[in-house]
Design a protein around this nucleic acid. Structure first.
Lengths: 270, 270
DNA sequence: AAGTGGTCTAGACCACACG
DNA sequence: GTGTGGTCTAGACCACTTC
């Protein structure tokens, strides 16, 4: 029991030191949530409010540890996370610096079309238009697969409240996913079926804008030449291609959007 | 129950596993890099190779700690990272499970156009076409800014090897970034200038496909109606809008692409 | 050479969710 | 209740890089 008191006593001191002292310097913690999060907020706040300027050097972990009254490990976790998020740059021996010129690469999420439609409160449907089994090189060629490899091709349309919004053309590597040959896709769309069933380890995307061909325009119910968003995705597993898919979506019925990034900023409500 | 027995049994095995002996159970570490990385690789390998199936429960941290012969803290770091990357799902009291159906949101990076052009080994140039100071509501309206707020508008074109590839139309909040009023942007593009100078904490993106208007087509040197990629980005800092920008890029001269995601997979070369 | 961040350990307490 | 992951500490050693 005395152990426990001593322990909690230390912790109590720590938290007091944080919340009670340093009123003016802005190093106080807010006492909400895990300590490392509080420190993240405190440090990010200093930076975002300009008290620690871009390029400026921060106190080292030891000093921050005493400043906030927590262990060095805890400081390390907070600072390392901020560095990963791009607020700080760390260099051994040199120290930790406020990042200058955040060349951040804004991340744009690409979601499953069914999820998007459902989230909008609309009725999602899909229809398989064509389904063929063939071998690579016969009529079509999947560059990353050897010639002669068995392929399942799927063509389908996705609807939102009955309106066509996306065309999907997909190749599936039957060597990698043989079960797909027996799947009718009555109720579950191929993308969902695959994601539920087949593990993947990497994916490549390309997004571009294209004018609808006459055929695509007819399928999607728009004028030929209408701008469409084209998304190509190849999914791999253990260096083996799983599926290659080409989505085509009408420009004014579909868009990609996302708020980025920075965990700490959203946590901070900034 | 048999937990105890199993536990000590596992511990015995662990010591063997630790020293590099592996009986084909796949629990051996490769000795390369930090321990937590080795454990990440080992666990991810088990999953990706199907030895730990989707939905299956992993040993708890204590058991993994003995299994690999490292501290629980180190195991925790490895497993928590894998969970963040979507391979695992963790639930208190219940345990850690191999993720089923990774509904990952593939992330697509949006980079600075200058960086993209330079990386392609082409010559990047830009030209400011128009620059105006005005107040919100006078002719244009920036929804997230109060009426009457001072705004700088910038219109410019970006070139790759002399060919126009992107049109930029930008609003800058002069209350937030007053220095921008004195910046001529002779040598540095506005996007770069802003990113180097102004801290931001969050950004929202929307990407869509649009047909080029006659005016845009003329500027970009394409036929009217050509499909273009439209990217809208609003950057905020401390809940205050900093800049709102609209990029328009010719579909067949510009695309977004990215390889996603999974750190461990790339580390694993899978 | 020395200071910095990076990692690791052993041990502890806690919050939470499940049985 | 009770097992699980989540967090924290004190102390230690190491790797790297700049001084």
């Amino acid at each position: 029991m005395s152990d426990r008191i001593a322990e909690s006593g230390v912790q109590g001191l720590a938290r007091q030191g944080l919340t009670g002292q340093d009123r003016g310097s802005g190093t106080a913690l807010d006492g909400k949530g895990p300590l490392f999060d509080q420190i993240k907020r405190a440090v990010a706040g200093q930076i975002l409010r300009g008290r620690w300027q871009a390029g400026e050097r921060l106190p080292n972990e030891e000093e921050l540890s005493s400043l906030y009254g927590v262990s060095r490990q805890t400081v390390h976790k907070a600072i390392a996370l901020l560095a990963r998020e791009g607020f700080l740059v760390r260099r051994r021996r040199a120290g930790t610096f406020v990042a200058t010129g955040r060349r951040d690469r804004f991340a744009l999420p690409i979601e499953d079309i069914g999820d998007v439609v459902a989230r909008d409160g609309r009725v999602y449907e899909f229809r398989i238009r064509e389904r063929k089994s063939l071998r690579n090189g016969e009529g079509i060629r999947w560059p990353d697969l050897p010639d002669g490899a068995p392929i399942l091709t799927l063509e389908c349309l996705h609807f939102s409240d009955g309106m066509p919004i996306q065309h999907e053309w997909r190749l599936v590597n039957l060597d990698a996913v043989p079960e797909v040959a027996d799947e009718p896709f009555d109720s579950m769309a191929p993308s969902r079926w695959l994601v539920d069933r087949v593990p993947w380890s990497s994916a490549e995307h390309t997004v571009r804008a294209v004018n609808a061909t006459a055929e695509m325009a007819a399928l999607l119910g728009v004028e030929p030449g209408t701008a469409c968003l084209s998304i190509r995705r190849q999914t791999m597993h253990l260096s083996r291609p799983i599926t290659l898919v080409h989505f085509l979506s009408v420009g004014d019925r579909f868009s990609l959007s996302g708020a980025s990034i920075t965990d700490s900023a959203t946590e901070l409500n900034m």
